[in-house]
Write a protein that binds this DNA or RNA. Sequence first.
DNA 1: TGGGTCACGGTTTTT
DNA 2: CCGTGACCCA
Length: 680
Amino acid sequence: MNKILSELNEAQRDAVKHIDGPLLILAGAGSGKTKTITTRVAYLISLGIDPASILTLTFTNKAASEMRERALSLIESVNYPPTLCTFHKFGLLFLKFNINKLGRNNNFVVIDTDDKKRIIKSFGIDLPISMIASEISRYKNSLISPKEVFEKAERKNYKTIAKLYEQYENYIASNNLVDFDDLLVLTYKILEQDIELCKQTSDRYRYIMVDEYQDTNELQYRLLRKLCENHENLCVVGDDDQSIYGWRGANIKNILEFHESFDEVKITKLEVNYRSTNQILKTANALIEHNRERIGKNLTSDFGDGKEIAFIESADENQESQTIARKIRKLIDTGADPRSIAVLYRVNALSRSLEEGLNKEHVSYNMVGGIKFYERAEIKDLISYLRIIANEHDDYSMKRIINKPKRGLGKVTIDKFLKAAYESKMSLFEYISTHEAEVKSIASKKSFVALYEFIENIIKLKELSSDNSYDFIFELEDTFKIRDYYSTLPDAVDRVSNIDEFYGLYRDYVKQNLEMSVDEFLNDLALQSDQDQIDYEHISIMSVHASKGLEFEYLFVIGLEEGFFPLIGDGSDIEEERRLGYVAITRAKRELWLSCVGSRFYKGRRATLKKSRFLKECGVCKGSLVLEKTTSFKKGDLVKHKIFGIGRIFEISKVKREFKLKINFSGTKRDILASFVEKI
DNA sequence: TGGGTCACGGTTTTT
DNA sequence: CCGTGACCCA
């Protein structure tokens, strides 16, 4: 026990040793947050507290598995491990045992955002689907019923949304579907209506810990209150300065007002940073001090001062990426580990020019984020096959695969089936299997045959799935030839390798869970985001959001211009932007480069840009923000104009914020603004 | 049915 | 500029 504690600094030890009553651990970036939580779990167990009474909640699977691993390594031996999982997984487990309290069966299916959108889309309304989906999510996470939305709505559009919300809720409930929000909403509702169960549950989890508390939303807060019904042993860990998910419902007030929401809150600040040089911390501290809504803390380290923060200013994104690519090339050539290098940007769109620059310098990179494995069309198709096998009444999956591989069934035919099925109050699958004559009259002869072969195959695989899971996935491919189908389509190489990876994943899962059923596999899969596919050889490039929790020896942050970082748009919050800046800077361990450009090509046009206010606020760019502009054009350069063609520059001058070029187009001399021509 | 063309809109992302 | 979705025609 003492050995565990001796690894900690004073503030960390103070936090770990606090046992009863609410505790807020304000953990600055790189201050050993995970170490503190995992040690606290181990410490509680070492005191003889039943591991089963300790619940630790995280946001991501990645955080959960990392913590589980570290906590277990600190615990000498326990018969069973403490519960440590994501909020949503906790909800899933809870609902498996208790959803019957809402009169529902526990063989429900978890649907993802994509399914949700398709369901809403099927209601046939011409409002933007993703807007409606996120509105519904917002209401659910604030525990507002469709009725309340309808009553409060003043504009007609919101009345429509309220109705869609109601229709959606009815639909998923009657199909026994559960969306991500429901995992928490339904859990909350059960705890609220069943006081006895609420007390039991609270008693069962006497010690609760929450990671990344600054990212919790209203619903999560209220759920935590329910779980603390019989005690107040709630330990939350977070950093108000790193709250960057306000736009998706995180309520920073949860952490800012924690000390008022609970009685006798103990607050511990972890301000010693074990990651960065003082130059980096100084820059980060200077930036975040401009925020008003914060608890306030100041990070220090004893890693020494380190190198000064470098500032890169380029004329445009091409020059920027060239400069950065060359610097990275040099770092690698002088022995830096590529894995310790990263480039961050606020907006994914900025990756394009960066990628070009890196390619030109032959720097291999790994883009984190981007298109997700489980969101790829081929993977979604496979999942739909599995879903139909698990539950043939799943019309959404049925629609997705009914003509994949092609069986000659087009949109019109499928719509006819859907309508007929709807009228007979049956699922698509049910209707087709029981109405052969009708189907024959709708479909063409060829597609009719293919369709019934498909139906029979599904039935065959359904039987197979119940007894022989391991060979099952081979049989699936042999029967439907999805892999073959994709190997004829564009991007075949990538798609086929994704399919193979998925098959491998399935087999691994079977190996680890011998008794598993297909629907168990699917529900677990729904809660799984990307495997963190950090590449083990290359540098990383990613959005600032994606970089949260990571660290790099050498870090570049690009696009520090007004409008890009901070990003200005409707609903943008300058303090949250600044926190994003803070997160970005605090990813750096040893060296940090901040970069901005004078103009950028974005959404089909070139925009002239001003330096980010953050550069001044963090002290990197002293004095005024007036951009001393440079241009990469030189006298004598050959340039191309869309209309005038190719010409040669013979004079360069400055007009206000732009550069004016005098260009000789095969004898004709013209004055052209620099942004209208391209270097060749 | 399904390939081709055109208009449109375009932060950040986990479960 | 580039990807998505709606619509049109063979």
